[in-house]
Design a protein around this nucleic acid. Structure first.
Lengths: 183, 183
DNA sequence: TCCAAAATGGAGTGTATACTCAAAAAGTCG
DNA sequence: CGACTTTTTGAGTATACACTCCATTTTGGA
């Protein structure tokens, strides 16, 4: 039942090809054919590993986010600055994937399962922000959650702004937002 | 040659059908076939009026954006609360348009005329927010603009959040954000 | 009433897409 | 090796899409 090594290697090749294509040309460029061509693989192999193209795209997005996660183990030691820095790094370093992330999230509003996944991710992130805030000052829990929601909203909104205009200084405004939040 | 009345009526029917479909199911739902079916028109008629589907969608988006920005003259008397209330009303009352707005903006490519239009609209709104803030307290202009950018980012982000989960209390968090901004 | 321009119907085209399937090949392990 | 499982192949399917073509009908001004 254990997977063969060659299959795992193929999975990596496919994910890498998908990641490259998403970075280069966005969602539209990452067609099944393009992914398979670049990975040097046939469509059948793709579907031997992934149930759908969307699953592969989602996994790429997930890995990109994890790659900048300051505390993947969720040990509860990260600071608010750690979290904000991670967000900034994701948006500035993995800019193309950040755009894809927004694109998928916004266009998934009809498809419940995808929207729920994004929502779950968002909620978890709000909790981590709120926990980090609670660690550095003692306000009421309800207030802290609302504050975290607003701060994360500001980061999302500024990222959206940045998608429209790449000359926008995202990092500066993100730091401004968190400073204002702390006041 | 002057256009016939019937052609103008057909154009309105097509635009109306497009607007409805965009509201109901987003960009994906507004296929050429769906638009023509709802407008009670054949594909040939559509292309007698519009050079492409994209043009029709663009025109709908343009009209929607104008509807959201009813005072481009900026008479200079609106308060920050006025602006935030208008935003809240737009998101809660015109929820479908809000979603389309996000969807089109985020899926338009970077150097697109569409993206530029959204950006121009955003920048103008930031200016109005900043002006309103300046009227109720005297900080440095640069600081005020950054504050306006963050506040509007927060509103955009919270709207995005609300698109993912309609049980989210957008109005409450929006007011929380502006209160925090004023502190 | 005439008639050229405008509008329409609607079948048809080309293209791109995600995805399937059964047979063949290759990997794993006793 | 030999039995068993996983992986790969690659042609093939189904479908959806924007858009075209042009004969026919309708319009509205002179």
């Amino acid at each position: 039942m254990a997977r063969y090594q060659v299959g795992i290697r193929t999975e990596r090749k496919i994910l890498e090809a998908t990641r490259e294509l998403l970075s280069e040309g966005g969602l539209d460029a990452a067609t099944l054919k393009a992914i398979c061509d670049r990975a040097g693989v046939q469509a059948g192999s793709f579907y031997n590993i992934f149930p759908s193209k969307e699953q592969a795209v989602m996994q790429v997005a997930r890995e990109a986010i994890q790659a900048v996660d300051p505390d993947p183990e969720d040990s509860g030691t990260e600071t608010l600055d750690d979290l904000v820095d991670a967000y900034i790094r994701f948006v500035t370093d993995q800019s193309d994937l950040a755009r894809i992330y927004l694109q998928i999230a916004v266009s998934s509003s009809n498809d419940d399962s995808v929207a729920r996944r994004f929502l779950r991710h968002h909620v978890r992130r709000v909790e981590r922000f709120a926990d980090a805030m609670a660690r550095e000052s003692e306000a009421s829990p309800a207030d802290t959650t609302a504050k975290a929601e607003v701060l994360l909203g500001a980061l999302d909104g500024l990222a959206f702004r940045w998608v429209l205009d790449r000359s926008f200084d995202f990092a500066k405004h993100a730091r401004f937002a968190v400073a204002q939040c702390r006041r």
